[in-house]
Design a protein around this nucleic acid. Structure first.
Lengths: 202, 202
DNA sequence: AATAAAAACGAACGATCGTTCTTTTTCATG
DNA sequence: CATGAAAAAGAACGATCGTTCGTTTTTATT
């Protein structure tokens, strides 16, 4: 009887997941070998396979963490007086992510189209995000703070398309300048949401 | 002396490239084997390697064709009276592409970040597209048909981000409805370009 | 038709990959 | 401290991949 404590177990599995994430982001899922991950995590194959029983389950694990990450970020989003400002801040936050996380999103998205297991998880992540924005936009609409011409479902879909465009472009184009495109894209989003002007404050 | 005619040579290399494209789109670059491509093209490995000396050069070949394809589509774009309509038509055209081509774009984009050779070609494709829209928008601006608040470079960048968002989402989300998001996204693009209203015709 | 070179074939090679398995080390417990 | 099971190690396995190469087939030319 010499079982490691659950905390230690979790800690080590997280450590391996981190290493795998760095490797996947660096070289892509199919180009990184299990040996690469072992080297990066400084563990042996035997040890790694105690925590994850296949290469595939490493991607799945990364997916799950990504969902948790977004959930916490979105929960912290202040939807107070200036929601466009909050949206801008959220966008900035994502665009300031280390390159490694962004490449990972793309990598996972691709893998999801071909790997049913990853696809399932990814779909639930997408659903969660879509739901979060859907709730936010409907709330803003019922409160009369936005007056979109299209229905909420459509607005959410278009919004997510624009957001994904940033994600993709930032991951793929080395010359991408986040601070250049963010303002015009926020303008574009504003055209979708059509925030209703309140009585001027200044 | 039994050399095949250049036309035949080109024909067969195109045939192989088509098959490779289908395979890459179906399973991704790293998951398709040379045997897969041989089977799809109905040629032997020995024959394939006469036309392409590596798996990598197949992607490169596909890239080059993609550039030519876009060039011809853009050249055919009627930039007459109703350029927003023309833009919409171009968008619809791309979104109506067979799934296979769209997945291919994503596949190539990813590969470009890791494969210097592919990266070089992809960069030139991107440059060509960016240049095309840059020219179009500056022309529209000097003619006084649009009045963007941001400078042309920025507008082009934001526009391409939105376009890429559609490409990505359509490739990755099986429930993506092109006809649903296209109208709001065109609205968003309009907010960037700010077409100046001419005297009403109807 | 004969010919010679190009083109195509396809079995096979060497390298590499994901995974396993035997051995050794570690560590909570008696 | 002794113990035994869990955890880690890492050499090794079978499978598979991109590519090659010796042979056969095709084809433009004489």
């Amino acid at each position: 009887m010499a079982k490691l404590s659950p905390e230690t177990l979790r800690e080590r599995s997280d450590h391996i997941l981190d290493a795998a994430g760095r490797c996947f982001a660096r070289a892509g899922f199919h180009r990184t070998t299990m040996q690469d991950i072992c080297r990066e995590a400084e563990v042996s194959p035997g040890a790694l396979y105690i925590y994850f029983n296949s290469k595939e389950s490493l991607i799945a694990g990364i997916c799950e963490r990504e969902r948790a990450e977004f959930a916490s970020r979105f929960a912290e989003m202040p939807v107070g007086a200036d929601f466009m400002g909050a949206l801008a801040a959220l966008g900035r936050q994502f665009l300031e992510d280390p390159l490694h996380r962004r490449l990972l999103c793309v990598e996972v998205g691709i893998e999801a189209t071909r790997n049913p297991k990853v696809g399932e998880i990814q779909k639930s992540v997408e659903g969660f995000i879509r739901g979060s924005f859907h709730d936010l936009f409907t709330k803003l609409k019922t409160e009369g703070r936005i007056a979109p011409v299209f229905d909420i479902d459509t607005v959410v879909e278009a919004f997510m398309t624009i957001a994904d465009g940033m994600l993709w472009r930032r991951a793929v184009d080395e010359n991408f300048k986040a601070d250049v495109v963010l303002p015009p894209l926020l303008e574009a989003v504003a055209a979708l949401l059509r925030p209703v002007a309140h009585e001027a404050k200044s």
